[in-house]
Amino acid sequence: MNAKILDTPSGPIRFPAYVPVTTFGGKYPLDGLIQPYLPRLAPALMVSHHYARQMREKPRLPVMIDSGGFAALFEGSKVLARKGLGILEIHLGEEPELLTPWDVLEFQEQHADIAFTLDFPIPPNLPIRDARRRQKLTIANACWALENRRRREMRLFACIQAWDSESARDCARQLAERPFDGFAIGGLVPRAWDWELLSSIVLSVRNEVGSRPLHIFGLGKPELAAKLFELGVDSVDSSSYVKAAADGVSWATGSKVPDPSVSDRLALALSNLALATGSTLPLSVGKLFPTRC
């Protein structure tokens, strides 16, 4: 049976929960416009380690901080092993940046209500040897974080990476033996087109972790989120609501605003998010909606 409520230092999260992804730092200005409305529209928010480091003030709702391990998919990134743990070398600027499980955990303990362990996505068609190596390091990082966390009130979710139901079951089984507060499955976005595969991975993990919370990264189209909730998933996160709005797309009507203005995009993003979370828009937001929408 699914957990109904997860208590966090910043308040309870009721499941099932649709969690919007946001960013800080100004790279995506629309996110900054949306953030004041999030406490009214969302049960929590998700932010990656990279953007969370640019957060100047903690939002007024539970904050989930992902490790940022998805950067393993960036061109030139390298997954390295050091003393049995996985480290990510990211090449975005002139100097490579290292993402380590200890740096991630230290930051999460200062800022997160729910933290996710440093994992390494396994894209389709990755050679099986490399896939197993990434999964092994993902498991090692999760176990290390559990053993070394100091802020006990912060909820710690172990990340699971897999390429099929059997590998998902094996990964989940090893992690389920330990007292994690919850679990999260990553690497499913490029597999979302294959519902049979997707559902088999989710069910394999659910069978191993029991009633503890189960989160899915990156799958937030409303129709797909609803199917995942029916399957036993407790929460999902996504930036789809704001990406659709940036393109002028309304989830509520299926229509598209041509050449949307900033206020159009904000109104659409809030409307899309309200639809996904089942929330009611504040009355003040109605003034933002364009008459042509």
Rank of each mutant, 00 (worst) to 15 (best):
D119A: 15
L268W: 06
A274L: 07
K27L: 08
E75L: 08
T100R: 08
E147V: 02
Y28A: 12
V205H: 07
E89A: 14
D164N: 14
G76E: 03
L270Q: 01
Y37T: 14
N141P: 10
I122H: 05
R169C: 04
M64S: 00
G248W: 09
I34V: 15
D259Y: 01
S271P: 07
R14F: 00
K256M: 13
A172Q: 05
P9H: 08
P39N: 07
L273K: 03
E230I: 01
N141C: 09
G187H: 14
F15I: 08
A168W: 01
M55G: 02
C171D: 06
F116L: 15
L224F: 09
L45F: 05
A245D: 11
P36E: 14
L188R: 13
R292E: 04
Y51Q: 09
G218P: 01
A269R: 07
D113Q: 03
L118V: 04
R132V: 00
R178P: 14
W195C: 10
P9I: 01
G86D: 10
Y18S: 07
K221W: 10
L146E: 05
E89W: 00
T138V: 09
S279Y: 04
D119W: 08
R178I: 14
H91G: 01
G68W: 02
G32H: 12
M55I: 02
F120M: 10
E177C: 03
I122N: 06
C171E: 10
E106S: 14
S240D: 10
E95S: 13
E230S: 13
V79W: 10
R82Q: 11
G182L: 05
K4L: 15
F107R: 13
